[in-house]
Design a protein around this nucleic acid. Sequence first.
RNA 1: GGCCCCGUGGUCAAGCGGUCAAGACACCACCCUUUCACGGUGGUAACAUGGGUUCGAUUCCCGUCGGGGUCACCA
Length: 486
Amino acid sequence: MKIRTRYAPSPTGRMHVGNLRTALYAYLIAKHENGDFLLRIEDTDQGRLYEGATDLIYRTLADTGLKHDEGPDVGGPVGPYVQSERVKAGLYQKYAEELVAKKEAYYCFCTQERLDSLRQEIDGKEVMVYDKHCLSLSEEEVQAKLQAGEPYVIRQNNPREGKTVFHDELYGDIEVDNAELDDMVLIKSDGYPTYNFANVVDDHLMGITHVVRGNEYISSTPKYNRLYEAFGWEIPVYIHCPLITDEEHKKLSKRSGHSSFEDLVEQGFLSEAVVNFVALLGWSPEDNREILSLTDLVDCFDYHRISRSPAVFDYQKLRWMNGEYLKAMGPEKFRSLSLPILRETLPGFADDAEKLTKIAAMVQSRVEILPDIPDMIRFFAVLSDYDTEIYRNKKMKTDETTSLHVLKELLPFLEEAEDYTNDAIYAALSEWIREHGYKNGYVLWPLRIALSGQATTPCGATEILEMLGKEESLDRIRKGVSMLGG
RNA sequence: GGCCCCGUGGUCAAGCGGUCAAGACACCACCCUUUCACGGUGGUAACAUGGGUUCGAUUCCCGUCGGGGUCACCA
């Protein structure tokens, strides 16, 4: 049997990383077995529709490489793939009425006020269990109300006694008392189906074999199974994925600032790195590999190895992983990715392709995310004010006094030197240092500080000399000398 | 609160009755070095807890504690 999985988002905004991971796992489960991965848009909540959200879903799927075989934009044999279009065909209404005929569902005319009176607050949380009030309506009463045009919903009719068991591939058999199952709404008063109903109907009609979804649906799964059974449909394989939480072990929220794929991309993360990272949140391969491309993942993904416990989204590790991707890419690719940032940060170098290439190379091995670059290289353009304290370095045996001395001693030599290319100036400088009986760091440390105004730079002192050129370099050294009281 | 799920270092995460309890991020130290970073080496750090079952439990069972999810005409 060919595996068919689906990603069924509701077009309400950006793609949450939890949803992204669910989509990824659904994709991997299907593709590992050469199955189909489909996209279905669940737009049954008219109030929450968000302009452009569907396009955002297409774009995110494309950016992450989760290519769907069937969907609204690419078509397929079991369409339409947008639920609002299926509503127009009367699909859900038809199936709901079938359930009513089987006494597995019933019309409910209760007003919002009556429903509200059923609500109660427990531990600060609002809880409501419907009391089956409308189940007792006679067929004549129902017809009369329907004829009168009274607004209604259709509710599932769940038993009060007995137990319902369902099987999840990760969690095993889960047994629930039927008393826990409330009569959930299947068709809303606006004629649209609820997620709960549309999901079951469509998964069946679209031939979904493995239902992959978040953990939060686990407690409503028995109700879905009762639906499948009422229709006489085959129950799919369930795979409920564990939650992704923030550092506080709470559900990842917009407040954490990195809850959606787009947030992360805006923060400078590579989509490959995000996909890789998210794949490892709740799953691990048999071997120890951590850097895995999407095709690697397809190859080795075994859903039985998905974890059952929630995972904390570790921003630090994502940064590290992004850096691994940056370091692993070819210098050409890195250069083209970083070029716009380089140009913007260093307008004076914007036309000097050679220097920009060198700077890109310097930065490639030290950057975790591209937006870190400006702070690392800004000193090439402007020398900021700095604290002379950074001239002090225990290991190099330097302080303000020795630095002042060395810098003054060095100045005439650098004024005389003509060739400021790195190799040449480094050779000449090394010679000078040897002649004076100094250690490299004793001289190079203060020189680098004077040139950059920073304790850490993406390159050594002589590379800065080359970048700045003779005149600017000498200016900065003189400024250092005066700052040190010389 | 009812029901359900989860519980290995700070975090991710191997383990699936017998291990000195892997590995990665972070952290620390050292090496390398023209600073930082990269790279290399080493280190600190964990089986929530109490009972069982067993010759033997991180691993199986039960209780406790802790965390999370869910109880909508949202998905």
